[in-house]
Computed example of a mutant assay.
Amino acid sequence: MDDTVESVVRRAAAVHRDQRGALLPVLHSVQAELGCVPPEAIPVLADEFNLSRADVHGVVTFYHDFRGEPAGRTTVRVCRAEACQALGAERLVVYVREAGLELGETSADGAVTVEQVFCLGNCALGPSVEVNGRLYGRVGPVRLGAILEGTVSS
């Protein structure tokens, strides 16, 4: 096992150990530091919290915010909630697929990870996307392309 992963997990567990429901804050800490929750972190987490590996794996895979591999340099989150769907979010999904990506995947060159979410809280300005934590509203395929190329402001 990678000593770096183990030390990151144990350090995060020590910080949050006394909190109720500490596993989730520890997972967030691990992902913030490593860019993901790698598979080799699962047995260490299970040991730290006296849980089965299956229990820890279940939590990691249940929550869409956790990933087993680092995200791309740019992370795009496309809102697929009802309001955004009604305003054309499916066109964004088609655009992403035509660009050779699937939702939940990272491009082969590690440049872009595209994820779907089910509300960004920007319903009045849908369809909405979030790019590297920055929220954009009324996004169509052309604007999404421009945002990804870094040629448009909010």
Rank of each mutant, 00 (worst) to 15 (best):
1 M>E: 13
2 D>F: 02
5 V>N: 03
6 E>R: 15
6 E>I: 04
7 S>M: 08
10 R>D: 08
11 R>Y: 00
11 R>W: 01
14 A>G: 14
17 R>A: 15
19 Q>I: 00
22 A>R: 13
22 A>Q: 11
23 L>G: 05
24 L>D: 14
25 P>A: 06
28 H>S: 10
29 S>W: 00
30 V>H: 08
31 Q>M: 09
34 L>Y: 04
35 G>A: 03
36 C>Q: 08
37 V>N: 03
39 P>S: 12
40 E>N: 12
42 I>T: 14
42 I>K: 04
42 I>C: 07
43 P>D: 06
43 P>W: 01
44 V>S: 06
51 L>M: 15
51 L>P: 06
54 A>T: 13
54 A>M: 10
55 D>A: 14
57 H>E: 15
62 F>L: 12
62 F>H: 12
66 F>R: 03
68 G>T: 09
68 G>N: 07
70 P>E: 01
70 P>W: 04
71 A>Q: 11
71 A>D: 15
71 A>M: 10
73 R>P: 01
74 T>E: 12
75 T>I: 11
79 C>K: 03
81 A>F: 09
83 A>F: 08
85 Q>D: 14
88 G>F: 10
88 G>E: 09
91 R>F: 07
91 R>I: 00
92 L>H: 11
93 V>N: 06
94 V>G: 05
95 Y>M: 10
95 Y>Q: 13
97 R>D: 12
98 E>P: 00
102 E>F: 00
110 G>Q: 02
110 G>M: 01
111 A>L: 11
111 A>N: 05
116 Q>V: 04
117 V>G: 05
119 C>Q: 12
121 G>V: 06
121 G>W: 11
121 G>K: 07
122 N>G: 09
122 N>E: 14
123 C>L: 04
123 C>R: 00
123 C>T: 05
125 L>W: 02
127 P>C: 11
130 E>F: 01
133 G>Q: 11
136 Y>E: 13
138 R>Q: 13
138 R>H: 12
139 V>K: 01
141 P>Y: 06
141 P>T: 03
142 V>M: 06
143 R>E: 15
143 R>C: 00
144 L>S: 02
144 L>W: 02
144 L>D: 07
145 G>L: 08
146 A>C: 02
146 A>E: 15
148 L>W: 08
148 L>C: 06
151 T>N: 08
152 V>E: 14
152 V>Y: 08
152 V>A: 12
152 V>S: 09
154 S>W: 03
